[in-house]
C-alpha cells in the first residue's frame, strides 16, 4: 500500500525575521528560509562569550538566525568555497551559552537538532521572542545544501577549523525545518515525548530486571537524558 505524500502547513520566512513574523506560528509547521543565516556552535560560543571576542561587525543587521551545524565544505585552490551540504548538530549541549548568546547576537531563530529542554524555552527563548526550528530527520544535508546560494563570509576558519568556524550563508528556499518551539514555549518534542512515555510501563511489563544494577543519574525511563 503506497502512502500519499503527507502535506503539512508550510511557510517561508525571510531572515532576518521580524518579531511579527513569528506571531501565531504553530509547532509542527514546516518552514523554509530565505535570506542570511550563520553557523555558531561551541567554538564560536567559547570565543565570543567566554573570551570576550566581539561579534563580526554588521552581523546582527544581516541575520538573526543561528544554525547549530557545520557544513561539509572545503576551500578551493583559488580561495572560493565548495559547500556540499549542511546537517544540524544536537543543540542541548549549547544550552548554558544561550542566555548570553541571545543578549549578544539578538538571535530570534535557533536552528538545530533535537531542540532544547522546555525549561530553556520558557526561561531563555520566550523572554527574548525567539523560537526553535529543528531540521528534519537530521540527515537532510543534501536538501539543505541545495538551499545555500553562496558563502558570504567565513570567520575564524584558520583558528577554529572548518567545523567550528562561523559560516555566513545566503540561502533560498532553505529547508525543511519544523517549528519545535513557539513564542509561548510550547514544544513539539515534549508533546510527543509525553504520549510515548504513557506506553513505556506496559512495554517493560513481565521483563525481569538484571541481577546487577548500575549507578546512574536516572532510573526513570520517562526522563530525558539531555
Amino acid at each position: 500500500m503506497a502512502r500519499k505524500k503527507i502535506q503539512f502547513e508550510t511557510i517561508r520566512l525571510k531572515v532576518p525575521v521580524k518579531p511579527e513574523d513569528l506571531v501565531g506560528l504553530k509547532i509542527g509547521t514546516v518552514v523554509y528560509l530565505d535570506g542570511v543565516i550563520y553557523t555558531a556552535r561551541e567554538g564560536v560560543y567559547k570565543k565570543l562569550l567566554e573570551n570576550g571576542h566581539p561579534l563580526p561587525e554588521g552581523l546582527t543587521d544581516l541575520s538573526n538566525a543561528n544554525f547549530h551545524c557545520s557544513p561539509a565544505a572545503s576551500i578551493n585552490a583559488d580561495g572560493s568555497y565548495n559547500v556540499g551540504g549542511v546537517t544540524a548538530t544536537a543543540s542541548f549541549r549549547f544550552s548554558h551559552w544561550m542566555a548570553d548568546w541571545f543578549k549578544l547576537s539578538n538571535a530570534k531563530l535557533i536552528l538545530g537538532k533535537g531542540g532544547m529542554p522546555v525549561q530553556d524555552y520558557l526561561d531563555l527563548f520566550v523572554p527574548v521572542g525567539a523560537i526553535y526550528l529543528t531540521t528534519v530527520g537530521y540527515g537532510t544535508g543534501a536538501l539543505l545544501g541545495r538551499g545555500i546560494k553562496s558563502v558570504r563570509q567565513v570567520y575564524w576558519l584558520e583558528e577554529l577549523g572548518n567545523a567550528q568556524a562561523m559560516w555566513v550563508f545566503e540561502v533560498e528556499n532553505f529547508g525543511p525545518f519544523l517549528v519545535e518551539s513557539d513564542l509561548d514555549g510550547n514544544s513539539l518534542f515534549e508533546q510527543h515525548g509525553k504520549l510515548i512515555n504513557a506506553n513505556l510501563d506496559k512495554l517493560y511489563e513481565g521483563l525481569k530486571a538484571p541481577a546487577l544494577s548500575r549507578f546512574g543519574e536516572t532510573d526513570d525511563r520517562k526522563d530525558e537524558l539531555i
Binding site: 546537517t87 548538530t89 544535508g141 545544501g145
Partner: peptide, 26 residues
C-alpha cells in the same frame, strides 16, 4: 510526523544522488 520525516529523508537521498553531494553533512 514520523512518516513525513521518512519521506523527507527519501527526497534527500534523491537530491544527494542527483546533485552528487553528500546526503548528510555530518
Amino acid at each position: 510526523l514520523s512518516c513525513f520525516v521518512l519521506q523527507t529523508m527519501m527526497d534527500n537521498w534523491d537530491a544527494a544522488s542527483e546533485d552528487r553531494r553528500p546526503m548528510c553533512a555530518d
